[in-house]
Design a protein around this nucleic acid. Structure first.
Length: 111
DNA sequence: TCAATGACCTGCC
DNA sequence: GGGCAGGCCATTG
């Protein structure tokens, strides 16, 4: 069984993802930075890997370019774009349009 | 224990 | 402005 510290990290990621406002997106790096480890951006993606089955809007999390890097991990992959579009976010070529406008920085917006 | 992998990020060419 | 290579952190075999 994993240690509690790691669970805390996962829980924080899930909670933060749940706090993302509708129609907004954030990046793995932003989440990692908010959690204290900017270098652990990859770990955030790993946490998202376990977000399946939970109440976590992983579709609102993209990489720093606004590209739906994790869409392939959805079921089906097109679900991510579908959900984002249904929230008012425009997607084109697996990329978030107006990324700057819809971007949500937890360390600044959430405070 | 060591080596390889991954839903990433930053820097350099 | 776009593309390529290196680096960080944690998990898994």
């Amino acid at each position: 069984m994993p240690s509690v510290d790691k669970n805390r990290f996962f829980e924080d990621v899930y909670e933060l993802a749940s706090l993302i406002p509708k129609g907004r997106v954030t990046s793995y790096g932003a989440i990692a930075e908010y959690l204290g480890s900017k270098r652990s951006a990859r770990m955030v993606g790993w946490a998202m890997n376990g977000s399946h089955g939970k109440n976590v809007p992983a579709h609102r999390v993209v990489n720093r370019s606004g590209m739906l890097s994790g869409k392939a991990h959805f079921q089906p992959p097109s679900l991510m774009q579908k959900l984002l579009e249904s929230e008012g976010i425009e997607i084109k070529d697996d990329q978030v349009q107006n990324f700057q406008s819809v971007f949500w920085d937890p360390s600044k917006e959430l405070l």
